[in-house]
Design a protein around this nucleic acid. Sequence first.
DNA 1: CCTGCAGTGTAACTTATGTAACATTGGAAG
DNA 2: CTTCCAATGTTACATAAGTTACACTGCAGG
Lengths: 214, 214
Amino acid sequence: MTHLEQLKGVFEPELLQEMEQFGIYQSFKEGELVMDYGKYIRMMPIVLKGTVKVHRLDENNNEILLYYLSSSESCSMAYSCCVEAKKSEVKAVAEDDVELIGIPHVKLDEWLCKYPSWKNYVMRSFNVRFIELLKSIESIAFHKLDERLISYLKEKQRLSGSSVIKASHNTIADELATSRVVISRLLKQLENSKKIILYRNEIKLLSGFETPLK
Amino acid sequence: MTHLEQLKGVFEPELLQEMEQFGIYQSFKEGELVMDYGKYIRMMPIVLKGTVKVHRLDENNNEILLYYLSSSESCSMAYSCCVEAKKSEVKAVAEDDVELIGIPHVKLDEWLCKYPSWKNYVMRSFNVRFIELLKSIESIAFHKLDERLISYLKEKQRLSGSSVIKASHNTIADELATSRVVISRLLKQLENSKKIILYRNEIKLLSGFETPLK
DNA sequence: CCTGCAGTGTAACTTATGTAACATTGGAAG
DNA sequence: CTTCCAATGTTACATAAGTTACACTGCAGG
């Protein structure tokens, strides 16, 4: 039960034991592909360590960031997919070194009736994912790029726990579905107004950029 | 079992009977509010007749269309919400005269284990909703307004089964989260290129606008 | 028949964002 | 130390979309 430490508070001991027994451990190095667009989904992942970045591609291979999965979170989209053995509608990449446990779809259903904590976990996951997607839609539809960029940086800060964001302008542009020049421009504006300092592959968030208490 | 005709193929007879027994029938006239933003969700609706329009509001009360629910579809977001008695993140309005049956949340869980057809239905709903939301994100993020407008009109055509769309420019603008002037401009362009004819509160789609086979 | 108003047409302008092109720089690889 | 390339800075321009303002037109209600 070494790997499942952080799930102890979430699930009852018998369920944890079954997870240990039937779950499939996987680790990914930073940048590795966790799930590719169009691949069949056979299990539902629960992230144990690290952060997974989930995005959506369009027909021209543009991609846009949907959300991040961090410790003890799971992608419930995978659940609803693998019940019907669907192909993935999204792409998932390891943001840093990631460990996860995959629950085979046979167990998904079995546990649903057997363990209330599992059912609650799954439903809560669904809910969280829906809300993330809604927030994403809201952000794209109602907010200008500069606001979206700021939210993006704050989210990175929250996830990494550091005020120094490691990312190239190009990466950021991809994740916000725009072009590099635009991001460079906006970042430079933020730097001019003393909100950030730009380095190569790094962005330092200054005070006035603290994460709101939320 | 008069109202549940269209669900006959979907669920087993015993489940239908329970639905008849425990479900709560509701009807709404065109334009009536089915679910408001911020209200508590106590049951999961299954649409029996008509179409329900689901949108999201932002802090300034701008709204954007998310998707439509038509016959025998249900809003699985409601499901994941009412398990935890959450407040609604969306607003739902009857697009025309609507009948629906609300399943109380106690039964939701009970049936999940009892009836495989129910579990499958619920999971498929989750999946369909996710994909709708993803399509929505894709549309907003990657497509220009003119393309989005065309998709919007086609979707209206598909749902109503008629090539005459009844809607004011203002309504369309709201649903696409833009302004009336912009929509009038784009519609006029479409009219000039012989794709549509504009009337007051009506838009007639001409040939060349036929719904693609999918 | 008037009146008012929602719905629509349209022009003129601002702004955000996309795009192309090119210069500069810092660091990794040899 | 060179060489090379990804990353960044910057300008100039094109275009989509938002904004304001105002005119016009049917239709509903008195």
